[in-house]
Design a protein around this nucleic acid. Sequence first.
DNA 1: GTCCCAGTGG
DNA 2: CCACTGGGAC
Lengths: 265, 265
Amino acid sequence: MPLRVATWNINSVRLRIDQVARFVAERGPDVLCLQEIKCREGEFPVAAFQAMGLPHLRIAGQKGWHGVAIASRLPIEDAPPLNACREGHARCVSAVVKGVEIQNFYIPAGGDVPDRALNPKFDHKLDFYERLTTEFGRRDPKAPLLVAGDLNVAPGEHDVWSHKQMSRIVSHTPIEVEAMTALQASLGFTDVVRAQTPEPQKLFSWWSYRALDFRKSNRGLRLDHLWTSPGLTPAVTPGSARILDDVREWERPSDHAPVVVELAV
Amino acid sequence: MPLRVATWNINSVRLRIDQVARFVAERGPDVLCLQEIKCREGEFPVAAFQAMGLPHLRIAGQKGWHGVAIASRLPIEDAPPLNACREGHARCVSAVVKGVEIQNFYIPAGGDVPDRALNPKFDHKLDFYERLTTEFGRRDPKAPLLVAGDLNVAPGEHDVWSHKQMSRIVSHTPIEVEAMTALQASLGFTDVVRAQTPEPQKLFSWWSYRALDFRKSNRGLRLDHLWTSPGLTPAVTPGSARILDDVREWERPSDHAPVVVELAV
DNA sequence: GTCCCAGTGG
DNA sequence: CCACTGGGAC
């Protein structure tokens, strides 16, 4: 029985609890990593997750913005908490499931101006990447570790609808791509979705709400990621790493699609 | 064929257009007077009213607040417009249907403090009543005239859940009841719902959203009214004047229930 | 576009 | 409790 793991920026877990239930019913994830739950821990819809068969929870919430959670079919053990957010936002949550350490992040979007000196949000985003890079640089590559989340960077030229147009836009600037590359190199992570769907195939996990018809304009970005450590990469089931972009077409959707992988652990 | 007239404070016509359609389908009003449409004239869902068979419209709208409309199955002719609102709010709209003049009002709620000197909203409410009293005092009692709307006063002791508790609360204070009584006397209007359901039978058309179960606590008020002029009163179909309080139980309801009457004209 | 907030109004 | 306003964020 492989372990099915999913990551999804849900953009308010309370408002979209029905979509979460549908996703869990149709796709049967064993572990669901959520970002932008937009509620305090006490406001999280615990009963609904119990009803969907994901009763084991780790929640890092705050009022109104951000917030991350891990919901699991199997029991959760504690994983070392990471304090990558210098602003004290609820952007990191972790769990160990079936011996796999899962680190779930909602990395700051970074504002509009891609300049550390001018834009404190952009500086915060890069600082977040740097802290994670330092942290994971100290880890044992052989240990099974999964990084999941909305990392708010689309690294490759085929992870954006237009490399040329996006190169000066936050989420695809060279300095952000460099920060993400450094993080990936810190422990030798594998980007499982891109590994299974080589370039030049385009891959997007997010489409703006502003588009009239997101399928037609298709101005997407791949912001949501699943990365395996060298010790976990051999467990990835071939062909299982996918972005479920159909979910973006559901009624009152999140602007992000879920990303899934299966691990033979 | 009697003329069925309804009045309903809809608390946003755009948000509750489905409830309006259901009401029209189930109850078949020929004329529907709406209050608190909460949109500009250009934002009014004209096509939906055409689809429900009420294509003839008179709309007085404004951005965000207040706003009144009359929707009719039969053609509408102009009625004299009343300018009872000193603040320029969209609170009055009129029509002539089948020779009956219909004046539809959303009278100000009046704020919390029942003192003209201290509370300009309360002063505005009484001023609105005074202007209407003057206007209708000039009219011919023999002409068929219907006053409809959310008049924001519950006049009788059996029009409130507790006469004792409510007598110091805006909507049932003696000064407001006096203002409403004076307006009613100006042309000799008949309050058709109360005329057909004598005291001490309690009658409410509004229940606060704040109640957990409005049926259980039943702390209602009769704020919504249909009044006939002496020339129109003989046309009222016996037993036809009712408050449709079941509608308050529908999904995502308005806090007001519709009030209906049939006129043999 | 679609969420949050805090505030006002009822 | 519910629905507006206007601002911020993404």
